[in-house]
Design a protein around this nucleic acid. Structure first.
Lengths: 193, 193
DNA sequence: ATTATCTATAGATCTATAGATAATGC
DNA sequence: ATTATCTATAGATCTATAGATAATGC
């Protein structure tokens, strides 16, 4: 019923951030446009003044989800570029992260969904992945070496894989065993050389 | 239009195996009942004499997909219980596996989908995961040690995570770098102790 | 005058069912 | 007689659009 341009921009961001959470929870095919708008306190008709299509929202939401993990760490007073790997791993491989995929790492929550998605989404995800590898390399003991980059790639695959499989296991003991085993190992990866 | 019970059983298996492939390709919400039956050379009406619901097919197809990787290795003359880890890794972390997720490992293709799915599907996936960890432990140098189990869990998370992220990256160089880096590392994991 | 959002709905798609058809198997 | 599959369709759900409403902003 008529709002200012500033309010429209805020509404747009609210929809994207809500979608970023709900799509990580339900997958990229999950929540529908009508339900999403309802959760945002709006109705379906207004959606298409913000996005040309659902696919366009998905692309924006994936971008937001890829960035949100870093943003969230910053909001919690953690500098993702300088946090020691051992502390970062405690957060990433926690039961809290496992149980709250909507607010968690996009790569753990949406790997297969992103791989199956459009080239637009895959390009966004690929650039985010590159940045994540670089950030992880910077957390290694001697960041300038080729060895640090290799370890960063290994740690990244290991951490996303572990949270993914820990979410599959509906046996709490097995799920925790995965998280704990990988946690210890990634810590040792940062120490040894 | 009227077939023997034997033929019905074969038809049932054909639908399940086709679904196991198509669901790994498109995700568990992917292909619809009508399209699936059409690809099987049948029509939609017959589906519900085989399965009470689409969900029931999905559970059977996940079971089939979880077992199919092992079956496929056996068909190719590979004994999954005794293949050296270094050879297994060459197959798992190959570009061929990355590019053919429909015939590949269910855990690399469907991690997030299985985590989001019903308890029935999650239980099937959890049991399969347990067996995979055991099989991977048996491939380690000293399989009876706790260290072997830990390495098996690490290798499993690393391999599923690596194939997943390699499928996300639409930059061939980055994708291959992930596969190659992890391949070398898992091989070293089996040697060192 | 423009536009952000609303209500209402068209059109496509998907799951599941009803009833018909043509084989099997006692 | 039973049943495996077929054709046809009901009912639900989802994306996208049309037209109305009530604000903004020149």
């Amino acid at each position: 019923m008529g709002r200012s341009q500033l309010e429209k921009q805020k509404t747009h961001e609210r929809i994207v951030e809500l979608a970023a959470r709900r799509l990580r929870e339900e997958g990229l095919d999950g929540i529908g446009v009508a339900d999403l708008m309802k959760e945002a306190g709006l109705t379906v008709g207004g959606f298409y003044k913000h996005f040309a299509s659902r696919d366009e929202l998905v692309a924006e939401a994936v971008q937001s989800a890829v960035e949100s993990w870093r943003k969230q760490q910053e909001e919690n007073g953690i500098d993702p570029a300088h946090i020691p790997l051992s502390e970062y791993v405690d957060i990433y491989l926690s039961e809290n992260h496992r149980d709250h995929c909507g607010e968690g790492c996009a790569y753990a929550a949406l790997t297969a969904d992103m791989a199956r998605s459009s080239e637009a989404v895959r390009s966004i995800a690929t650039e985010g992945l590159r940045k994540n590898f670089d950030a992880m390399t910077a957390r290694m003991p001697q960041p300038e070496t080729a060895d640090a980059r290799q370890k960063a790639i290994i740690a990244s695959c290991l951490m996303t894989g572990a949270v993914g499989l820990a979410r599959v296991a509906n046996d709490g003991a097995l799920s925790s065993e995965i998280l704990e085993t990988v946690k210890q190992f990634v810590k040792s990866l940062a120490k040894t050389e």
